[in-house]
Simulated scan of single mutants.
Amino acid sequence: MSLGNPAHPDVLRAPRFFFALFFPGGNSAVKPLNASIRSRHAGTPGTLLTLLLLGLTLSGCGSDSSPSAQQVNPVAPAITTQPASQMVVAGQTATFTVTATGTAPVSFQWQSNGTAIGGATADSYTTPATTAADDGEQFTVVVSNAAGSVTSSAAALTVNAAPVAPTITTQPASQTVSTGRTATFTVTATGTAPLSYQWQKNGTAISAATVASYTTSATTAADSGDQFTVVVSNAVGSVT
């Protein structure tokens, strides 16, 4: 819609006002505001004229309209990826993450066993270093926006005891046998399972000798003086 004068586009055209006159007997007329009023009723004593202002238009415009503001209703949050349960070793941290959709801004509040965690207001949460006391805790997150909120399913935290390096509690004992006989060596060790064993003869690993005891083949005089040791290992370390 053009509001300006074509010859002078920076100048608005003069507004025009219209009114309606309603006379007794049902007669009426619509006139520009600056038009002269002539009626057979004019000047008649006791005549009541009713003036109704119809509206304002701008010269050159058949109608005037303005776009109405479109209001968009916010969409409530929906969780698309639930937080997953975590398993850690005592002393490690665990991280829980959620993915959600919905009209921004979306806020997050993580909870541990139903209690809000201070400062845990992002889409992921990392615990402090865990202890055995944290084992079995349930973590959830409440996702909110202006349209509502939704709570995630619970994710469990499993905390395993920190692994312990192996310790040999019973050393293998020296053996004396007759020629042609076998000799058996045994070790006892503690530590976080699984424990692995590797027996050695004079410092060289013996093939397939990987359990807590080792039995030699039939001995000969040449075997006299052989030294047998065993290396016990787990994920943390090893001991000989």
Results as ranks from 00 to 15, higher is better:
Gly4Met: 06
Asn5Cys: 12
Ala7Trp: 09
Ala7Tyr: 03
His8Ala: 13
His8Ile: 07
Pro9Ser: 07
Asp10His: 12
Val11Met: 09
Arg13Glu: 11
Arg13Tyr: 01
Arg13Ser: 06
Pro15Tyr: 03
Phe17His: 15
Phe22Ala: 15
Phe23Asn: 13
Ala29Lys: 11
Lys31Gly: 05
Ser36Tyr: 14
Ser39Arg: 01
Thr44Lys: 04
Gly46Cys: 01
Thr47Leu: 03
Leu49Gly: 15
Leu52Cys: 12
Gly55Val: 01
Cys61Asn: 10
Cys61Ile: 09
Gly62Val: 13
Asp64Lys: 10
Ser66Gln: 15
Ser68Cys: 02
Gln70Arg: 04
Gln70Val: 12
Gln70Asp: 03
Gln71Ala: 04
Pro74Ile: 10
Pro77Met: 07
Ala78Lys: 08
Ile79Tyr: 03
Ile79Phe: 08
Thr80Asn: 13
Thr80Leu: 14
Thr80Asp: 14
Thr80Gly: 14
Thr81Leu: 15
Thr81Ile: 13
Pro83Lys: 01
Gln86Thr: 04
Val88Asn: 06
Thr93Asp: 02
Ala94Gly: 04
Thr95Arg: 15
Gly102Thr: 04
Ala104His: 05
Ser112Glu: 14
Gly118Lys: 00
Gly118Pro: 09
Thr121Trp: 07
Ser124Glu: 11
Tyr125Pro: 07
Thr126Cys: 05
Thr127Val: 02
Pro128Glu: 02
Thr131Ser: 14
Thr131Gln: 06
Gly136Lys: 00
Val142Pro: 10
Val143Asp: 05
Ser144Arg: 03
Asn145Cys: 09
Asn145Met: 08
Ala147Lys: 06
Thr151Phe: 12
Ala154Gln: 00
Leu157Ile: 00
Leu157Cys: 02
Pro163Thr: 08
Pro166Asp: 12
Thr169Lys: 05
Gln171His: 03
Ser174Met: 12
Gln175Arg: 13
Thr176Cys: 03
Val177Gln: 08
Thr179Trp: 11
Gly180Ala: 05
Gly180Lys: 04
Thr182Asp: 06
Ala183Phe: 11
Ala183Arg: 08
Phe185Ser: 05
Thr186Ser: 14
Thr190Leu: 14
Gly191Lys: 03
Ser196Phe: 02
Gln198Ile: 00
Ile206Phe: 04
Ala209Tyr: 03
Ala209Gln: 03
Ala212Asn: 15
Tyr214Ile: 00
Thr215Gly: 07
Ser217Thr: 13
Ser217Asn: 09
Ala218Arg: 09
Thr219Pro: 10
Val230Pro: 04
Val231Gly: 12
Val236His: 08
Val239His: 14
